Amino acid sequence: MSLTETSQNRLLALARQSIAHGLQTGRPLPVDLDAYPAELREIRATFVTLESRGQLRGCIGMLEAVRPLAEDVAENAFAAAFRDRRFPPLAAGELADLDLHISVLSPAVALTFLSEADLIAQLRPGIDGIILQEGARRGTFLPSVWEDLPNPTEFLQHLKQKAGLPAAYWSDKIQAYRYTTEMFG
């Protein structure tokens, strides 16, 4: 599903408004879904990424679609600004310099593989977002991470570390899922 440019711009504006609302109230912007077209009311999963002067400033999202697209963007924009544990909460003076990017995720599809090498061979650099899971440990990289980690082996090693596993770790219990994104902003 590809969003219209108008819908993309509306979501970017909504994300910024939710952050501004959060600075004033400490809560995400409430979304009146009746004010949005049908494509922005569909149940979809998103990530909102914040950058300041080219550096990551926050990134929060959902891997499963559980709420309407417009609401998911408002909630994730607020969370990226104020709840990403890697960063202090956003200060009012930072909002003007903030670049916002929204990734709308496709449903994740389980990958079938016989070994780590088999999984690596199935990865599509620049296309795939990957969820890696073993038991309660789980991590994901959006497709945009391929820009920094273009080598599939290194991509997987870093993703294992993000999931709380050693880079060289492998087990037959590891599960992997693939998704794609429509990214804009």
Rank of each mutant, 00 (worst) to 15 (best):
S7T: 02
E94H: 09
F87V: 05
A74F: 01
F47H: 03
L69T: 08
Q24K: 15
E182D: 07
T180W: 03
A65E: 08
E154L: 13
R67Q: 14
W146G: 01
D72V: 12
R57Y: 02
P143K: 08
R53N: 11
E116G: 14
V73F: 03
A167Y: 10
L11F: 07
A110N: 10
S144V: 14
L111A: 14
A176K: 05
L56V: 11
N76T: 09
R10N: 11
M62D: 15
T140M: 05
R178K: 15
L165R: 02
A91K: 15
A65C: 09
A74T: 03
D172W: 04
V48L: 05
A136R: 13
L69H: 05
M1G: 13
S103K: 03
Q133C: 13
I102M: 00
Q122A: 11
Q157L: 02
S2T: 13
I19A: 01
R44A: 15
Q17F: 00
Y36L: 08
L3H: 10
R137I: 04
E75I: 08
R53G: 07
A77P: 00
M183R: 12
G126V: 15
A65F: 05
I120P: 00
S115P: 09
K162G: 09
K160A: 10
E94S: 10
L11R: 01
A70W: 02
Y169I: 10
S103T: 06
A110Y: 04
L156Q: 01
F113D: 04
T153W: 07
A77F: 04
F141Y: 15
Q175C: 10
D32N: 15
P28H: 11
L14H: 02
R137S: 14
P68D: 07
E75H: 11
D34P: 00
P125D: 12
L119A: 07
T180K: 05
P166A: 09
L14Y: 04
L90W: 02
R137C: 10
E71F: 01
R138A: 07
R137K: 14
K162D: 09
F78P: 02
L123Q: 12
S144N: 09
D84H: 00
K160Y: 06
G61Y: 04
A176V: 08
